[in-house]
Design a protein around this nucleic acid. Structure first.
Lengths: 230, 230
DNA sequence: GTGACCAAGTGATTGCGGTCACATCATTTT
DNA sequence: AAAATGATGTGACCGCAATCACTTGGTCAC
């Protein structure tokens, strides 16, 4: 099941010529992390870029008082740590393995070389950064204009859209994320998420099953996010 | 006073060879906007990139109910509109001239070519995007962990650090931004900004003069931002 | 000057949602 | 099975800041 430790297994480098792949293979360092392990810590002085080849990692910020703010989850095929490699500034966030994970790391210099001298790679990196910017802007908009309840609605909607549907065509969120994780993604508290979920279940908009969450009424949920405030 | 309409006046392209500059000069379209004019509207379908050569523009988001959220101000030497040019998605924000402004626009294709085939330009674009990502992350952190009052404190601190100092070495913010603009940058209301400013003046931390704002006690202001919540 | 207009200051009110405090339920551990 | 651990569900409380409603002050046009 373990992927071969070769640059060809890194999506960003898929179309590079063999000579570049050879160079990369000499520069890449492969590592495994167990779920929960810290991959980049708060005061890390490294500038390496990490490619997720297997598993999933979570990018989080910590407030002064230790509250955790989830920025993003990155699954196989993605990478992280590129900001520090690009601008030389310190790490802006912590990254931990959300599952058992295999990553390949590349020094900032090697990354910079491969990412600027191959137009396709350069463009892919820019596209990735553009996506991150859009996601962040969307979140700023949400935080600025929606109340906590609506942000939870929005997050459930987002999860539903990413999910497969069950036999009856209803989105099935599986596994159900723990409330604390949702709270951390939309900057609210565990309790608020629980209250919103209860309310949604009471209105038959969602239905909690053993190990998955059914969204029964997507249109209604969509309407709720648009709701209120300004 | 008007800059010559040549690609050599666009910071991103400064070090390009003459042949590339010639190509760019044929592709660039120069335009002037008066303060307040809309440069990119909400439902614009264009994908052009705009280079600010003179003046200053403001990037804003609007909530459904019309509330305005300022994302960034871009002064001469900067550019905007690159997200849509890079990923082909619709515009994510509106841009308006904050002063009388001269911009040069470039089609998405031309931008993509110049930005991927010149390693230095590619890297500069990545650095710019990285800065945007860091700024956005910082704002998400602020919105998630600070109260409205503290965000105002933080904004005044930010302005103070960008400002020159007066004879006595105190930062002098000039001109004083209107309260509504500050509110829009930190996602609060005009009234809250006014209350915070009053309170800071009462504590002799800032002092409002005719057309500038003196920050008398930077250490105290810094301490206030770190304060409270989590 | 006198309006007109916009920015700024401030009180009163109110509701959202964070916090605390438990009770319950589910899963592992031993 | 009992105990431990962690996720959930909910009630009570209450503080921050958004909202509403003015007043005051500054600047411009004419």
């Amino acid at each position: 099941m373990a992927a071969k430790q070769s640059a060809t297994n890194i999506a960003l480098f898929r179309n590079l010529p063999q000579s570049s792949l050879d160079t990369l293979n000499r520069a890449l360092i492969w590592r495994k992390f167990r779920s929960g392990d810290e991959i980049i810590g708060r005061q890390s002085e490294t500038r390496d870029v990490f490619f997720v080849v297997e598993g999933c990692v979570r990018v989080v910020l910590y407030s002064v008082l230790g509250r955790e703010i989830t920025l993003d989850d990155i699954v196989a095929g993605g990478y992280f740590g590129e900001l520090a490699a690009i601008d030389g500034e310190p790490r802006s966030a912590c990254v931990m393995a959300a599952e058992n994970t295999v990553v390949a790391s590349l020094s900032a210099d090697s990354f910079r070389t491969v990412a600027t001298e191959n137009p396709d790679v350069a463009f892919a990196v820019m596209q990735r950064l553009a996506t991150v910017v859009r996601t962040a802007s969307g979140r700023i908009l949400d935080l600025s204009t929606l109340g906590a309840n609506n942000r939870v609605h929005g997050e459930i909607l987002r999860l539903a859209r990413l999910s497969d549907c069950d036999d009856s065509g209803k989105p099935m969120i599986k596994p159900i994320p723990v409330h604390g994780d949702i709270a951390s993604r939309v900057s609210t508290t565990r309790e608020t998420v629980a209250r919103v979920m209860s309310e949604l279940a009471r209105q038959n908009i969602v239905q909690r099953e053993k190990n998955h969450l059914l969204v029964l009424d997507m249109p209604q949920l969509e309407a709720m996010v648009e709701d209120v405030r300004g």
